[in-house]
Design a protein around this nucleic acid. Structure first.
Length: 330
DNA sequence: AATTCACGCAACCGCCCAGGC
DNA sequence: TGCCTGGGCGGTTGCGTGAAT
């Protein structure tokens, strides 16, 4: 007989989708205390959630470094390779794709890739001569995996674990590639909480980055993001977008990327990303102001663009003043 | 326009493992 | 050494949404 679920004895434990208010509470708490000791989270926050639910909400949705939205063909290939190699070890597979959660990968496999692989296998059987023309193989050998490891060091480096997302966030070599994929992705991709944590990373003390410089960089980067988006809309060409991305000056490229990643979100993405910004801002009056903006955005159901714009205006003002905020270590 | 169906994703469940006592 | 507990993982479910009829 197994151990009862952790929430069995909980009276009035809430289930179902998380509300923005709950997200705010959870992120605020983790911002102060760090992840871990999940047992204490519901006790100390008053959340009517079981500890496991809090942990899952954090790891699958709220934690920094998560990329959401469509998977790139590159990511698909990696997942297919690794699934063939490792089986359904989603956590292990996720460790090679630090931006993706195991849950996301698992869902994507179950809903997309499994069918795709099956279809390709059927095609392979019916047209054995053509199988090697596919962009990825369905039964890779370890040497295939090694080949991917050689050609895609950013994703396929076994040392690149997602156990510490800040490691990933500080892996600046990855940024250009990420930016390129961002530029070529649909507009609803990659517009999530993680950006705001990237923003927080971007806000780390830098001798070259003053408050006004940060604001200026924000403006300039916003233009770049918009230009890139326009370019993409006009041409739908990854090469052009990649060229645009690579045209950004080298010295500030990484910082610009983080900034762009935050600013260029053009949809009403997850409410929790704004909430996370509030948690990140977490400094007295500024935090209160941010929370106020975010609460409006979260709760009043404003039109996405206008609300995002208003919230971002406030957030940028605040962040400019707190660009040397203490880094939060997760 | 209303209903049905299929799909995607967030969240839950149950089991396992590791560490502390 | 064995038990207890917290945390992690993989499988599964259920709801929301858009497409099809």
């Amino acid at each position: 007989m197994g151990r009862p679920p952790c929430c069995d004895n909980g009276v009035g434990v809430k289930k179902g989708p998380w509300t923005p208010e709950e997200d705010i509470i959870l992120v605020s708490y983790i911002q102060q205390h760090g992840p871990g000791n999940w047992r204490s989270v519901p006790e100390n926050t008053g959340l009517m959630r079981c500890s496991k639910s809090c942990r899952l909400r954090w790891t699958n949705y709220l934690r920094p470094g998560i990329k959401r939205g469509n998977f790139t063909p590159h990511e698909e290939g990696i997942i297919i390779h690794l699934q063939a190699l490792l089986g359904n070890k989603w956590a292990a597979i996720a460790s090679y794709l630090p931006q993706r959660t195991d849950n996301d990968i698992k869902n994507y496999w179950n809903t997309h890739l499994k069918k795709k692989v099956k279809r390709l296998q059927q095609q392979q059987q019916s047209h054995p001569d053509h199988h090697h023309h596919h962009s990825f193989q369905t039964t890779p050998s370890s040497s295939n995996a090694a080949a991917v490891a050689t050609t895609s060091p950013n994703y396929y480096n076994p040392n690149n674990s997602n156990s510490n997302s800040s490691n990933y966030l500080h892996n600046n070599n990855h940024n250009l590639e990420s930016m390129q994929s961002m530029a070529t992705a649909p507009s609803n991709e990659a517009t999530t909480i993680p950006k705001l944590f990237q923003f927080q990373t971007w806000m780390k003390p830098s001798p070259a980055t003053t408050s006004s410089a940060a604001t200026a960089a924000a403006g300039s980067c916003y233009k770049q993001a918009m230009a890139m988006q326009e370019l993409q809309e006009e041409q739908e060409g990854s090469a052009a977008a990649a060229a645009m991305a690579s045209s950004i000056d080298g010295v500030s490229k990484d910082q610009d990327y983080h900034m762009c990643a935050v600013i260029s979100g053009d949809d009403k993405s997850s409410s929790s990303e704004m909430m996370t910004a509030a948690a990140m801002a977490g400094h007295g009056e500024a935090a209160t102001t941010t929370f106020s903006l975010l609460e409006n955005w979260l709760l009043d159901d404003m039109p996405g663009q206008a609300a995002m714009s208003a919230a971002m205006d406030g957030f940028l003002e605040i962040s400019a003043g707190y660009c040397c905020a203490d880094p939060i270590m997760f």
